[in-house]
């Protein structure tokens, strides 16, 4: 009886009545909540805007004709709309070909990387083998050592590729592998690609979290190792693997370090983009029939478009796979 009465008063009494009953606590509580949420909204809006704004600016300046760039009355909305800039950038970056090349190399490399990293991570998570600690320290080292430290000798060893001197003994010459995708595919297959230490770490963390009894049950039922791995572990691990794949794909897409060193002979978009400035003057000189100095504003505009073209496919991908992206790292965080 008394209980229902309390509810009655609580729900029907006015705000001030309830505030009076609580001794001013309700007002303070509501006010502080409002202030916090307004402050939070402002902060979030500001920071989000800061992240999005460069994209918007790139988009709007990309549509401007050259005079608009120097017109101080034009800030965001172009007066003379044009899609010509996109055509120019497309030609500058060897567009359809470079994009296709980027697509297939990124796909190939990231698939190889994720496959090998998954196997290695599973090995680290589940089996006891000699020198396990040492090899795991090597994984950590792989994360820490920047590839720039070893780029010189990697460059050398692939420019003059040889396995224990076999090629030199048989043909008298070493093989230059730098002109093919083979070295990088090999490196990806052996977990030495871009940030692969990180993927091994993430996946190992995931596999460690899966209860061991699952595999033990499979073992008792006579399921072989590979079978257990493929049929029991892999299906559950798919979201984590997928997110590692996405990271790998996206980072490979924009990467210049490995691309510049190993895929120099392919026309890859990120490579094209990184050297776009030098190609720009040549392009305009051809058009005008004489040497031209490309004005800074124009250069900047074209670079912006290049950057936009580079990230738009990734952003679209991200929109569809946002949840998957985050999944792997959410697993990782719980430990260490």
């Amino acid at each position: 009886m008394s209980k229902s009465k309390t509810v009655h008063i609580g729900s029907n009494a006015s705000f001030w009545e309830r505030n009076r009953r609580s001794g001013g606590y309700l007002l303070r509580h509501t006010l502080s909540k409002k202030i916090v949420s307004i402050g939070r909204a402002l902060l979030m809006f500001g920071l989000c805007f800061m992240i999005i704004q460069p994209l918007l600016i790139r988009f709007s300046t990309g549509l401007m004709q050259e005079p608009d760039l120097y017109d101080s009355t034009i800030v965001l909305v172009p007066r003379h709309l044009t899609l010509d800039n996109y055509r120019i950038v497309g030609e500058l970056t060897d567009m359809p070909r470079s994009m296709l090349n980027t697509l297939w190399t990124s796909l190939l490399v990231s698939v190889l990387q994720v496959v090998s990293c998954t196997l290695v991570a599973y090995g680290f998570a589940r089996y006891e083998f000699p020198l396990k600690k040492f090899w795991f320290a090597c994984v950590v080292m792989l994360i820490i050592v920047p590839p720039q430290t070893i780029q010189t000798s990697l460059y050398m060893s692939f420019a003059n590729f040889d396995i224990f001197g076999i090629f030199k003994a048989t043909t008298g010459k070493t093989v230059n592998l730098r002109t093919s995708i083979l070295p990088y595919a090999l490196m990806s297959l052996t977990c030495m690609g871009l940030k692969n230490g990180l993927y091994i770490y993430i996946l190992r963390q995931y596999f460690k979290g899966v209860p061991k009894s699952l595999e033990e049950a499979a073992f008792v039922d006579g399921c072989g190792t590979l079978h257990t791995f493929a049929r029991i572990m892999l299906p559950d691990a798919m979201p984590t693997i997928a997110s590692c794949f996405l990271f790998s794909f996206v980072w490979q897409w924009t990467d210049v370090f490995y691309t510049r060193n190993f895929l120099g002979s392919y026309s890859i978009y990120s490579n094209q983009l990184s050297s776009i400035v030098s190609r720009m003057s040549r392009y305009f000189a051809q058009g005008a029939g004489q040497a031209v100095i490309v004005p800074n504003g124009r250069q900047q505009q074209l670079i912006s478009i290049g950057v936009l073209i580079c990230c738009v496919p990734l952003i679209i991908l991200y929109c569809f796979t946002q949840k998957t992206f985050v999944k792997s790292l959410v697993m990782t965080g719980s430990k260490e």
Partner: peptide, 15 residues
């Protein structure tokens, strides 16, 4: 030990 080494073999070679 055997299976574990097999699993991380790609890493060992690559490293």
């Amino acid at each position: 030990a055997r299976i574990g080494t097999m699993f991380i073999l790609p890493f060992i070679i690559g490293f």
